[in-house]
């Protein structure tokens, strides 16, 4: 559970304070002379925790698009991937596959956010006027195109090998493995809390009310004089930029990017987390994400006990994940903590 979970739904001030505190703490810890040995059994928890921080940023962006504005973006992974690849190409040094330009990493991170936002704007311009389910198809197709492009243009994107040699700032400062992982965990959870604070600020403002009005009835919203296309475009681009930020962080944490990190699996995980928790409620979607990622963590241990190969186990896990998606939509369309009336669904 992240810091954000224990905070009551307010204006996000507490989350902002906690986020800043966590980020400062993580940086201080990274530069401090203390060292920690991370026991092997614990490292898997820390790894999943780091990933959880990134996915929280992803799910908050998606919730802004779907939960608040009603935009069915089923290619969220593409913005995550664009951010990661942009940051990696700009910052990597001497990668043996693909392009590596060797610019400083802060620049690369900012560029990752910007390029993801631009891609979001282009996709939005082409498909935000379409019916909901067609937007889903257009975004899904975009993700598929980008995946094919990264695999095929090996001169730029490194093909299926991907790009290596991306600088890892936290590791460079902290030194040993255990300390790096702990500092990264606290840093990413802090950044996730900050994202939560910013998104909450946005959606509790009158601006957020317009977004929810668009989701409820776009025609009515337009008839009271709101430029609904502009609002939809903004929400879409904000979500894309947040995913790009998470992607940039991922590249700088992992030190490498490859097409296999950015499959439809990412989109599905984030969507299930959001629907399971309850769309349009920031705390609920984070809770749902925690449940689904907890299941993933649990399944890693369960695999050791179950008498099947890891390939078969992966298939079993995906069957369970797919069934959860189907069952949630059928029996709890508002999610575990969601408000059915607010979402306008029967439950």
């Amino acid at each position: 559970m992240s810091v954000a979970d224990r905070i009551r739904d307010g204006d996000g001030t507490l989350a902002a304070v906690a986020g800043v505190a966590a980020v400062v703490l993580a940086l201080l810890f990274a530069v401090s002379p203390f060292t920690v040995g991370l026991p092997g059994e614990l490292s898997v928890f820390v790894e999943v925790g780091v990933l959880f921080g990134l996915y929280v940023i992803l799910v908050l962006g998606l919730d802004l698009q779907y939960g608040h504005t009603g935009l069915v973006n089923f290619g969220h992974v593409v913005f995550f991937a664009v951010g990661a690849y942009t940051a990696a190409i700009l910052a990597a040094q001497d990668s043996f596959a693909g392009t590596s330009l060797g610019y400083p990493w802060p620049l690369a991170l900012v560029a990752g956010v910007l390029v993801a936002a631009v891609v979001g704007a282009v996709v939005g311009a082409t498909s935000l006027r379409l019916r909901d389910d067609f937007l889903a198809i257009a975004t899904l197709a975009t993700a598929e195109i980008f995946h094919t492009v990264t695999v095929n243009f090996s001169g730029t994107f490194g093909g299926s090998t991907g790009i290596f040699g991306v600088p890892q700032p936290v590791a460079a400062v902290a030194g040993d493995f255990g300390k790096t992982m702990l500092a990264t965990l606290v840093l990413f959870l802090g950044l996730a809390a900050l994202t939560y604070a910013i998104v909450t600020r946005l959606t509790t403002a009158p601006y957020g009310r317009v977004l929810r009005a668009i989701r409820a009835d776009e025609l009515v919203t337009r008839s009271v004089g709101k430029s609904t296309f502009r609002y939809k475009m903004q929400a879409f681009v904000y979500g894309a930029a947040l995913a790009g930020f998470a992607g940039g962080l991922f590249a700088l944490y992992n030190g490498a990017v490859a097409p296999s990190f950015f499959t439809i699996q990412v989109t599905v995980t984030v969507w299930i987390g959001m629907l399971l928790g309850g769309a349009s409620n920031h705390r609920a979607v984070i809770g749902g994400l925690a449940v689904i990622m907890g299941l993933r963590l649990f399944s890693r241990f369960a695999n050791d006990l179950a008498p099947v190969t890891s390939g078969e186990f992966a298939s079993l896990r995906l069957i369970v994940v797919g069934m959860i998606l189907v069952l949630v939509i059928r029996y709890r369309p508002a999610g575990i903590w969601g408000d059915a009336e607010e979402l306008g669904v029967d439950s």
Binding site: V72, F74, V268, L318, I319, M323, L325, I329
Partner: peptide
């Protein structure tokens, strides 16, 4: 939209 999402889950299964 719920039907599309259901079909995506069903496809995975």
């Amino acid at each position: 939209v719920p039907m599309l999402l259901t079909s995506i889950g069903l496809g995975l299964v």
